[in-house]
Design a protein around this nucleic acid. Structure first.
Length: 135
DNA sequence: TTTCTTACA
DNA sequence: TGTAAGAA
């Protein structure tokens, strides 16, 4: 049957090959709370499919010139939007959606779809000293 | 052999 | 981020 996307199964070596990131980067993202994997009894990091997906997203954003703190903001907003979506989708069958629920959804989808979020971030980049793009 | 932590360049 | 050292 289905393996839960958060089942911890990949060692850091596997993740390195799967994402193309270095061990150092993968561990650094763990240390800074970006992607925190499960641990084996021997303290080895064990990444899930979901973790690998997040890591790939980070790599993609960094390749676009996004800074680590921006990536952190994007991931944080995403998981928030995801959690909120779960709740709303639970109690809103399209037949019985009421005003409050509709408003909640409107406040969530714009973030999930990114345009406003990305615009806000781009604005901040132009105002932040030390910004670096391609190298 | 691989991964872990800590610490310095 | 890369790399080194020493332990698991």
């Amino acid at each position: 049957m289905d393996v839960p996307r958060d089942a911890p199964v990949y060692t850091i070596g596997a993740v390195r090959r799967l994402t193309g990131l270095t061990d150092r980067q993968i561990r650094y993202y763990d240390e800074t709370g970006l992607v925190v994997p499960a641990r084996t009894p021997g303290n080895q990091r064990l990444y899930s499919e979901a973790d690998v997906g997040a890591l790939r997203e980070i790599k993609h954003l960094l390749a676009e010139g996004r800074r680590i703190d921006e990536v952190r903001a994007i991931l944080a907003l995403r998981s928030r939007a995801r959690a909120a979506s779960r709740e709303d989708l639970m109690k809103s069958s399209d037949a019985g959606m009421r005003f409050g629920e509709a408003a909640a959804l409107r406040s969530i989808y714009p973030l999930a779809n990114r345009p406003e979020l990305l615009r806000a971030i781009d604005t901040r980049r132009n105002h932040t000293p030390g910004t670096r793009n391609e190298k």
